[in-house]
Design a protein around this nucleic acid. Structure first.
Lengths: 235, 235
DNA sequence: CGGATTTTTGATCCAAGTCAATACTAGTGG
DNA sequence: CCACTAGTATTGACTTGGATCAAAAATCCG
């Protein structure tokens, strides 16, 4: 069941068994990528969408001055580029943060799904829009939160998203990225990200070490981060 | 023709005359709002989508500390909250930056459209995803561009978007927002935005005065702003 | 084991924020 | 039509959060 996690994490609108089977049947193969491998290259014409089955993926843009801005981080069960179906190409790149397994869906197969079920269409459309809502929350983060708060907010977001997929262990979760990645996601330098991580640890909020996040005090962390999960549309 | 500008600015995928008429027929009324009036309130349950017919609109979030982050600015021909169709509520608010006229479309009417035409669905879906691509470009702006560059980039974006709607006059266009709005969109303080505007003027790139943008040197401005319109999916 | 990333810490610098005061502008009502 | 007001815009002086530069320590990995 390639689509199990996706369906589990996207319960709205409710699909019929037929619709769930049609989605599963639309998958047309799987692929593997090693760490840092590019999965989708900016501006390349696309004919398939990619569902992340295992591992972590980033969407990013490199600026002329050599800075990298991470735009989104994906966890298993996320479509990483479903937006390529209506857009036909992407304005950013997609790369593996860890070794990953993905499943692919051809645009034609998705087109067929949209012709057959308005409900399934709504679900797929909705999932791309939840992505966009996360993009907007990141605008708020980089635009109007301090460095430590940004990092804390990201740890909260990943905790909730991974929890939904059953990928947390109590107050801990694996988040196999480097401090450089965290910095690139939050619009910081790696040096400053490192200092802010120490601060979060010393304040007893979160600890990040070797790809493992340990939440020390969820309530305090959530408050400190101004984190309100409404933008994740979890219902 | 309420949908004329929308169709004109969203040529892909190509619709049949039937589909164009069906979209036009789905409109269920118009409304007016004065400057600063809230059009859609964060978290309110929604049953209609809003197409901007005239005037300018902002989407924004207010943070606990009283900062406002503008997430998007809309121009005539844009659906300002088509994403409310799959999402049913929004995680941000929508307000009028100027006096505006909008047309509304009920979610049921949109549902009917999606049942009848996969092509029309793809067009509507696509328009929400272009919005999301703009959101992501704003992440890059606030996350990794300097203050003057951010402002310059915004002026470039608005120029291209307004040009597409025939709302520019040569190298000038009306952009009836305050410096406070510009600052809130770019994640800056109004004081610093003011200084950066002076710098852009003195460098001979753009001039912003009383809601009018005057592009002094498009080539230099575009280069300075690192502006590449690919993310607007103009084709 | 050995080279390459990554993490950590220190010292210094600068872009942008803050605080404050003045000028300008557009509405509003008498 | 002008005076009053509230919201903008502008400029100056000062502070600060985060960047930059540099070097050492830790970790990863083939």
């Amino acid at each position: 069941m390639i689509t199990r996690l996706f369906l589990q994490t996207h319960p709205t609108p409710l699909l019929s068994d037929n619709e769930r089977e049609a989605l599963e049947a639309a998958a047309c193969g799987t692929a593997e990528y090693g760490t840092k491998r590019i999965i989708v290259r900016e501006q390349a014409p696309l004919t398939h969408c990619t569902l992340l089955v295992s591992g972590f993926v980033e969407r990013y843009k490199d600026t002329p001055e050599g800075r990298r801005q991470i735009l989104a981080i994906h966890v298993p069960g996320d479509f990483v580029d479903l937006h390529s179906y209506p857009l036909k190409r992407l304005e950013h790149s997609v790369a593996a943060l860890t070794p990953v397994t993905v499943a692919t869906f051809s645009h034609e197969a998705i087109r067929t799904l949209t012709e057959r079920s308005a409900t399934l269409t709504e679900l797929l459309w909705r999932s791309t829009l939840i992505d966009a809502a996360i993009n907007r929350e990141w605008i708020v983060s980089v635009g109007s939160r301090g460095a430590a708060v940004r990092l804390a907010h990201l740890f909260c977001e990943m905790f909730v998203r991974l929890q939904r997929s059953g990928m947390t262990h109590g107050q801990n979760y694996d988040f196999p990225v480097t401090q450089i990645d965290l910095a690139d996601a939050c619009g910081l330098t790696a040096v400053h990200a490192n200092r802010m991580l120490r601060q979060l640890r010393e304040r007893g909020l979160v600890e990040f070490r070797q790809g493992l996040v340990r939440i020390l005090n969820w309530d305090k962390l959530q408050k400190f981060a101004e984190f309100d999960p409404a933008y994740l549309f979890l219902d």
